[in-house]
Design a protein around this nucleic acid. Structure first.
Length: 334
DNA sequence: TGTCCACGGGAAAGAAAGGTGG
DNA sequence: CCACCTTTCTTTCCCGTGGACA
């Protein structure tokens, strides 16, 4: 019943863009000068996850490249490359200037110097999850590089501006900002319909079922497509002709746990011990948590390190912290 | 209302890991 | 294979915060 599994993958460059055409226009305008060989305006994109921020940016850049020569583009995820060095390295990678970089003989300033010396036309860089960047001063340096245009993507505006250099912050107040809202019910249904049309055999899913999925996804397209994928896979496994309501009911929690599972697999041994304690206790005070952890771990790490782990797990949305200093508790999220 | 103190998180220092050139 | 350097991870130290408790 699955015709083309690719359209069930979240990365597939989809027709979603048509629901975001006004946002695309703003971004395209900001980057327009690039096609004439000038630097574009720094663009900032904000919005919750699964609303097409990354997707739209990549799409716009792709189209830019098609329409003009001498444009290089690069996509960097600051969640993966969160140090100054890694970020700069990744950016240089996009213009193939990393060949003879030896970490030993190449201080990070040298990386910047190379970017400044890049003369082969305009270079547009998407920096995704920019709030995850630990050293935001690197943005200030990048901002001042000729021929380099940045597209910054983040969840919340305040998070980006906090910890930002004052000088840069004031410059950025004038640059173009684009806010993405969660998809509407109708928008999500249209996106799903589109995927279904290309990815599944006709008649395998009803409009009502699509509406159910869209509703469960709460404005998040990634989640919606995840549910659809789970449902299609389940039906496929069970040799079903079509997707039943029962399959969808099961696919909704499965899609959620799929995301959680992916996060869990990235945890280290220590982090997993901590996570399991929190799940076990449901809500636990920091002190008790650390005591319990020291008992279970063969080589317990310091309190400070446990706090780092807790931070990380909050980022992954695995746990949440409630309360301020004294009455704080940690509990599993969801 | 004032004192106490666990907590979170920043900074510095130390240890480990990863890579290079001899 | 080793000496050496940079980056990354971990620990140690410290201080401001804000509930608890008198």
């Amino acid at each position: 019943m699955i015709v083309d599994a690719r359209v069930l993958q979240p990365e597939f460059v989809p027709k979603e863009v048509k629901h975001r055409s006004n946002k695309m226009d703003i971004l395209t305008n900001a980057l327009e000068p690039v096609t004439d060989g000038d630097s574009g305006e720094t663009a900032m994109i904000f919005g919750p996850s699964g609303v097409g921020k990354t997707c739209i940016s990549r799409f716009v850049l792709e189209r830019l490249r098609e329409n003009a020569i001498d444009i290089e583009t690069q996509y960097v995820n600051a969640w993966e490359d969160h140090s100054r060095f890694k970020l700069l390295y990744r950016i240089l990678e996009g213009v193939g200037k990393t060949l003879d970089i030896h970490r030993q003989s190449t201080p990070t300033d040298e990386l910047l110097e190379r970017l400044r010396n890049y003369e082969n036309g305009q270079y547009v860089v998407i920096i995704d999850e920019v709030d995850q960047l630990e050293d935001k001063s690197v943005l200030y340096d990048l901002y001042h590089i000729q021929n380099l245009t940045m597209v910054l993507i983040g969840n919340r505006e305040e998070e980006l501006f906090s910890g930002l250099d004052d000088r840069l912050a004031s410059r950025l107040t004038s640059c173009s900002r684009i806010r993405f809202e969660p998809y509407s019910q109708d928008g999500l249904e249209a996106i799903l319909q589109d995927r279904v049309r290309w990815g599944l055999r006709p008649e395998t899913i009803t409009d009502d079922q699509i509406a159910t999925i869209a509703d469960a996804a709460a404005g998040d397209a990634r989640k919606a497509i995840g549910i659809l994928r789970q449902a299609a896979k389940a039906a496929h496994r069970g040799q079903e002709e079509r997707i039943t309501d029962d399959i969808i009911d099961e696919a909704i929690p499965e899609a959620a746990s799929e995301i959680r599972q992916q996060s869990l697999s990235k945890l280290t041994q220590d982090q997993r011990i901590i996570y399991e304690i929190i799940v076990e206790e449901d809500a636990i005070a920091p002190k008790d948590l650390y005591e319990e952890y020291t008992e279970q771990a063969e080589q317990p790490v310091s309190k400070r390190m446990v706090r780092n782990h807790l931070d990380k797990m909050q980022h992954y949305n695995l746990i949440e912290a409630k309360g301020a200093t004294r009455d704080r508790t940690y509990s599993p999220s969801g």
